[in-house]
Design a protein around this nucleic acid. Structure first.
Lengths: 180, 180
DNA sequence: TTAATAAATTAGAAGGATAAAACTTTATTT
DNA sequence: AAATAAAGTTTTATCCTTCTAATTTATTAA
């Protein structure tokens, strides 16, 4: 028989918003020696009282150490989660910028929302996909350049043909190299 | 001088949750003649009173027509938004399944969350990227099959070489065809 | 057609995220 | 050190989303 262990506030079901706070605190503490309430508010685009009340919540959940009017620090748990979220953010941002060629600011904005939406499986698959693009001789960075041109509709027949020939030459050389 | 026009409930700032309801109602109304509160509740995994209160909100926003205890219908506006959200969902799902090769259920779950996170720009770029993969002679469906094998770590050297040769033959033929 | 059942709604409550206003504490300046 | 400014907190309130329990309406079966 299963007995539910006294469920207090301290369960670590974090909402996306809480994750955002942990991520912000994590990145801020990497940028400067001390994290201030004001900085968190600025980073997340909310007012200071909102931060204060969230700090209370995160304290109760054992994610941060915080004494009134004093500096705050992530606990081991909080730091771990903060870095995780930041990691997801970086992966998604890289995908948006390097593969989809989204501009920096937009990528950052989208990554910030997507980091809460994407499952671990999908995130891992995105990493594999980026690796695959990089490593497969048929894709790689010149193929991504092609995507860039494709988007701009700058792909007249002759240019395309020329590029295809270029590619097939290099590709054949690669095969010969492998055979040796 | 700008005068703010009496901002009542009827502003159409929709939260992601509201968008989910509109999408659910939209897809349900395509699946069956009448949409029932119970169906919406089931589809979204909430209880019926939650649906009732959201229907009130969406009514106030002019998204649905709904008389107590009677069937409900999307208005033009509501239907338009519902179909838009569904469209985003389909695009993201297709990307997750066809490109990233995520399984169906997981893709559906992720798409449902991502549909609120991804900007129009990024969504459009994903469409272009899928088109590019499909149309560029260097990628295409066999390249995606390669990704599938890559993921499973089934890419011994000989197999890779063999595949590369196969590809270069077909690719060369394609170039010759274009030159004519 | 009435009794039983299913569907929908109301009422009341709670938790999460936010902010304005007022207050307290800490830091800075003179 | 006192005065001023800046940072942080409390209090109070709102909006959003959800729920349970109780009630009402509609549908179905006897």
């Amino acid at each position: 028989m299963k007995i539910k262990t006294v469920a207090t506030t301290s369960e670590d079901n974090l909402t996306p918003t809480m994750e955002d706070y942990l991520e912000a605190i994590y990145t801020l503490s990497q940028e400067k020696r001390a994290v201030r309430v004001k900085d968190i508010a600025n980073r997340l685009g909310v007012k200071m009282p909102t931060v204060t009340s969230m700090l209370k919540t995160l304290s109760d959940k054992g994610m941060i150490d915080h004494e009134k009017y004093e500096y705050l620090e992530l606990t081991g748990k909080g730091s771990h989660i903060g870095s995780q979220i930041d990691h997801r953010h970086q992966i998604l941002k890289s995908f948006l910028i390097d593969i989809l060629q989204i501009d920096h600011d937009q990528a950052d904005e989208d990554a910030c929302k997507m980091e809460h939406a994407v499952s671990p499986t999908t995130l891992e698959r995105i990493v594999e996909f980026m690796e695959f693009i990089e490593n497969c001789p048929r894709s790689g960075s010149d193929w991504l350049d092609l995507f860039s041109e494709y988007r701009r509709h700058e792909m007249p027949r002759e240019k395309c043909l020329e590029k295809m020939k270029d590619f097939v030459d290099k590709y054949s050389a690669k095969i010969r190299a492998m055979e040796r």
